[in-house]
């Protein structure tokens, strides 16, 4: 619809405000990876604020190898029909046709994700061209602001997907938030050189300094496996959490999903986090990051 200013007339579908706005509605919540409509229903029932529809969770992508691509649209549709909460789906980095397909199906958010095998080793998708919003991964402030410059309406720190080891999620969140704190204490004459050094658009560097936070919502992802992990990321200062393999690769997904939701809401209340951590079955087995060869680290994908 065009710009009209008559009372009550819609003056825009798919503007940046509504794209970034949906992410604001997800804050304080848990977004869960699901591979079937039944898992999606379990996630919704547990209190997930959105689900990520995919064919294989990162732990399986890691174990099985091969090229990881966008999921079958029919399978994504099945998940969209099974729940009332927003449904996200992943496209490969740089694969704008997969993103066009996801837009055509009508998913609520596209994750341009390093968890899938990149389709372009130099360029990401130009996300401003789309009516649906995108979330992208980052390891540091420069990467976050480059993605926002390309049109990402939500950011997640990458962590190391499919490991169940929270150490990289902590490293990336601390890096982004630490760089923002440093930026806030910088006089304006230093901003251009800072922008050059981190490879970020100057206008977004300036805006981040003024806001004292990223200009869009920032979740943590990659390795969160327990209620305590979720509360840890929230206390470090992210807006919400993605949990991938951590739920449906655990011993009791129903209990664990619910416990992680509760720990994310009550992240500042150790009594509650303690109570919900009790008796929730085995956590996913996990892979210690320090045992993972550099070549197998997913977070290194993205530029």
């Amino acid at each position: 619809m065009s710009d009209q200013n008559e009372n009550g007339t819609a003056r825009g579908i798919g503007g940046f405000k509504v794209k970034a706005g949906l992410a604001q509605m997800l804050k304080g919540g848990v977004i869960m990876d699901v591979v079937t409509p039944d898992e999606a229903k379990i996630a919704e029932e547990a209190g997930a604020c959105a689900v990520m529809a995919l064919e294989r969770v990162p732990a399986d992508i890691r174990a099985q190898g091969g090229v990881a691509r966008m999921s079958d649209p029919e399978m994504i549709r099945g998940i969209m029909e099974s729940v009332s909460i927003p449904v996200m789906a992943k496209a490969r980095i740089g694969h704008f046709v997969e993103a066009q397909i996801l837009e055509s199906i009508g998913v609520d958010y596209v994750d341009e994700s390093e968890v899938l095998t990149p389709a372009d080793e130099e360029y990401h998708i130009y996300k401003h061209d789309f009516k649906i919003p995108f979330v992208c991964g980052c390891r540091n402030l420069g990467e976050a602001l480059r993605r926002i410059g390309e049109g990402a309406a939500m950011i997640r720190t990458k962590g190391e997907a499919g490991t169940g080891d929270v150490v990289e999620a902590v490293r990336h969140a601390r890096t982004v938030l630490g760089e923002i704190r440093k930026l806030q204490s910088m006089p304006d004459e230093e901003l251009m050189t800072f922008a050059k050094n981190i490879g970020a658009p100057f206008a977004l560097v300036k805006e981040t300094k003024e806001l004292g936070r990223l200009p869009v919502v920032n979740f943590a992802a990659g390795g969160i496996a327990t209620p305590a992990d979720a509360a840890l990321m929230m206390q470090i200062g992210v807006d919400g959490v993605f949990v991938g393999s951590g739920i449906f690769k655990s011993g009791d997904p129903v209990k664990r999903a619910k416990a992680i939701v509760e720990a994310t809401t009550h992240y500042n209340n150790p009594d509650i986090v303690a109570r919900v951590s009790e008796n929730i079955g085995e956590a996913m087995v996990g892979i210690n990051i320090s045992s993972l060869p550099e070549m197998e680290q997913i977070a290194r994908r993205g530029w």
Partner: peptide, 12 residues
């Protein structure tokens, strides 16, 4: 509708 239909409007 879904997110693709999200919009802004001026209201009295």
């Amino acid at each position: 509708g879904r997110q693709v239909d999200s919009f802004e409007a001026d209201l009295r």
